[in-house]
Simulated assay, not measured.
Amino acid sequence: MVAQAFTVDLNKPLVFQVGHLGDAYQEWVHQPIVSKEGPRFFESEFWEFLTRTAWWVIPIIWLPVVCWSITTSIHRRLSIPQAALCVGFGIFVWTLVEYTLHRFLFHIKTCSYWGNTMHYLLHGCHHKHPMDGLRLVFPPAAAAILCIPFWGLLRLLSTHSTSPALFGGGLLGYVMYDVTHYYLHHGQPSKEVARNLKRYHLNHHFRVQTKGFGITSSLWDRVFATLPPSKITDKR
């Protein structure tokens, strides 16, 4: 007797349902529902609240940390040009981190219950509901936890004076990434560069989901030959 395939009920909280899809999860999660209304994740109001973040929260919380980090390096006798160089290098490194996380972690193949569940929370929900405006940026509480090992690594690999500026640059790169990501989904760019970036990203969602892993830039897609085909479709 063949077991009946599991069906997700979109009218109920989704997080603890999607794991039951098993091998069918990958196909299900990459069939987007283009609606600005986000699904409910949890029964608990507390956990549901933690999954929703307005885009403007990101710069409000993190830009002061960026400024503090850069001024800390200057107070530690780093010159302004040197601090600017560290910030620029931090932003550059972030673009590689952004690409690497998106390609190798956010698009990992899962089929187990908890694998599907964690993937849905991390990135699958964004592909299933790409226009959900309150789940386009990373929740600050989770980002703060992830900052700890990155700060520790920078302190280990760099000097006492340069590590804060490098951290500030990487964090600034992250802020640019998150607000750009929101804009690519909900903004209506008038400049050609921004329009091309929007088409490039929406192509990843709606046409070739195995390519186009950059968000703020297509640089690393060009370097690692994961650039989507030149003929792309702008679907809203």
Results as ranks from 00 to 15, higher is better:
1 M>A: 12
2 V>Y: 13
2 V>C: 01
5 A>R: 13
5 A>T: 11
6 F>R: 12
8 V>Q: 13
8 V>A: 06
12 K>V: 09
13 P>Q: 02
18 V>H: 07
20 H>R: 14
21 L>Y: 12
23 D>V: 15
24 A>F: 06
25 Y>C: 06
30 H>W: 06
30 H>E: 04
31 Q>C: 08
31 Q>M: 05
31 Q>S: 08
33 I>G: 07
34 V>Q: 01
34 V>K: 01
35 S>H: 13
36 K>D: 06
37 E>Y: 07
38 G>L: 11
40 R>P: 15
42 F>H: 12
44 S>D: 14
45 E>V: 13
47 W>L: 10
50 L>F: 08
51 T>N: 04
54 A>N: 08
54 A>V: 01
55 W>E: 04
57 V>N: 05
58 I>V: 15
60 I>H: 06
60 I>K: 09
63 L>E: 06
64 P>E: 02
65 V>Q: 10
66 V>I: 03
66 V>C: 03
67 C>Q: 10
67 C>K: 07
69 S>P: 01
73 S>V: 08
73 S>P: 01
75 H>Q: 13
78 L>I: 04
80 I>K: 07
82 Q>F: 00
83 A>E: 06
84 A>T: 05
85 L>V: 02
85 L>P: 04
86 C>W: 05
88 G>R: 03
88 G>Y: 07
90 G>S: 10
91 I>D: 08
92 F>D: 11
94 W>H: 05
96 L>V: 11
97 V>A: 02
98 E>K: 02
101 L>H: 09
104 F>I: 05
106 F>G: 04
107 H>F: 10
109 K>I: 14
109 K>Y: 14
112 S>V: 09
115 G>T: 03
120 Y>F: 15
124 G>V: 00
127 H>R: 04
128 K>R: 02
128 K>H: 04
133 G>Y: 02
137 V>N: 03
138 F>K: 03
138 F>N: 03
141 A>T: 12
141 A>L: 11
141 A>D: 11
141 A>P: 03
142 A>N: 01
145 I>M: 03
145 I>G: 13
146 L>Y: 01
149 P>R: 08
150 F>T: 10
150 F>R: 10
152 G>E: 08
159 T>A: 09
163 S>D: 03
165 A>M: 09
166 L>A: 07
169 G>Y: 09
170 G>E: 07
171 L>G: 03
173 G>K: 14
173 G>E: 10
176 M>Q: 11
177 Y>A: 05
177 Y>H: 00
178 D>Y: 02
184 L>S: 04
187 G>C: 06
189 P>H: 15
189 P>W: 14
191 K>P: 07
192 E>H: 08
193 V>E: 06
197 L>F: 08
197 L>C: 11
197 L>Y: 06
199 R>H: 11
199 R>K: 15
201 H>N: 06
202 L>Q: 12
203 N>H: 12
203 N>V: 04
205 H>V: 01
206 F>A: 09
208 V>Q: 10
210 T>G: 12
211 K>P: 14
216 T>H: 00
220 W>D: 01
220 W>L: 10
222 R>V: 10
223 V>D: 12
224 F>A: 09
225 A>S: 15
227 L>E: 15
227 L>M: 14
231 K>A: 05
234 D>F: 00
234 D>M: 08
236 R>L: 12
